[in-house]
């Protein structure tokens, strides 16, 4: 089975604070640590496990620039056979529809049985996989948390409310968006990264893919982010201050009053 996994390099903000830039219209991106989007990493692992069972190849692709090559190499160190960087000035400022259009053009150039994305990336939009499927006229399923390969189709489960699983059968070729927890992604060591450090990663642009520059990029984007701001959702917590000991005493008093100590 030929499997394509679409991946994205994102700021790792699970452990880092986000600061705004001086203009206040974007976050300060320079100091952030970047890594492969967590959902995408599960998708690559799932593709590798499928290929281990039924044979075939895994290709990873990203739309970005030279900085994004590092995540392709990381996923190749996991076992993906090919990595492709899609990069062009004309792609800059694309919205989700634009990115899906670029990826769909790449898919048409190949011969893939299965295309995987992560459910979502850092912006939580959860959109590129479903859009790409519609453009390619392939069936689509989101939030996939198990895959069984059958002849000409897959048996998949989707994560739905309350921890329940929705079982589906889906024809190939198709696009699936992969949920975290579907597998346990393998560890990638320095040695693995070194082994793929000199592998040539082809770069494809608009003309290679036959993408009309006017159909993607900022000019074609119908959805735009105007700026960022700090959300003020609730009234905000009463923040305990002082030494750790003082905070603990206060906390015990409060929790006790609310019936939290038996």
């Amino acid at each position: 089975m030929e499997i394509l996994v679409c991946v994205k390099r994102v700021p790792d903000t699970s452990e880092n604070e986000i600061e705004f830039n001086s203009a206040g219209n974007d976050i300060e991106r320079d100091d952030l640590v970047y890594s492969v989007n967590e959902w995408d990493n599960y998708a690559v692992e799932e593709a590798l496990q499928i290929v281990d069972k039924v044979g075939g190849n895994v290709t990873v692709v990203t739309v970005g620039d030279d900085d994004d090559e590092e995540i392709l190499r990381r996923e190749m160190a996991m076992g993906a056979k090919n990595g492709v960087l899609i990069s062009d000035e004309a792609f800059s400022g694309s919205d989700g529809t634009g990115i899906a259009r670029i990826l769909a053009a790449f898919v048409r150039k190949g011969n893939y049985d299965l295309i995987l994305t992560g459910v979502q990336a850092e912006a939580g939009r959860a959109q590129v996989g479903g859009m790409m499927a519609a453009m390619l006229d392939y069936p689509f399923a989101s939030l996939v948390n198990s895959i069984e390969v059958h002849d000409g189709n897959l048996k998949i489960s989707r994560e739905i409310a309350g921890g329940n699983k929705e079982m589906n059968e889906i024809d190939l070729p198709c696009v699936l968006s992969i949920q975290t927890g579907i597998n346990e992604p393998r560890y990638v060591g320095i040695r693995g990264i070194r082994q793929v450090a000199s592998v040539k990663i082809p770069t494809l642009g608009a003309s290679d893919l036959g993408v009309e520059p006017g159909a993607v990029g900022e000019a074609a984007a119908k959805v735009k982010r105007v700026d960022y701001f700090v959300p003020a959702l609730g009234k905000g917590a009463e923040m305990l201050q002082g030494s750790r000991e003082e905070m603990i005493d206060k906390l015990i008093e409060l929790v006790k009053a609310k019936g939290g100590l038996k």
Binding site: I18, I27, G124, V223, R225, V226, Y228, F229, V230, P231
Partner: peptide, 16 residues
């Protein structure tokens, strides 16, 4: 308005 980065920041959006 929607959120990014797991709710750490909000974003004003415009949609044609």
């Amino acid at each position: 308005v929607r959120q990014e980065f797991g709710g750490q920041v909000s974003a004003h959006m415009q949609c044609d």
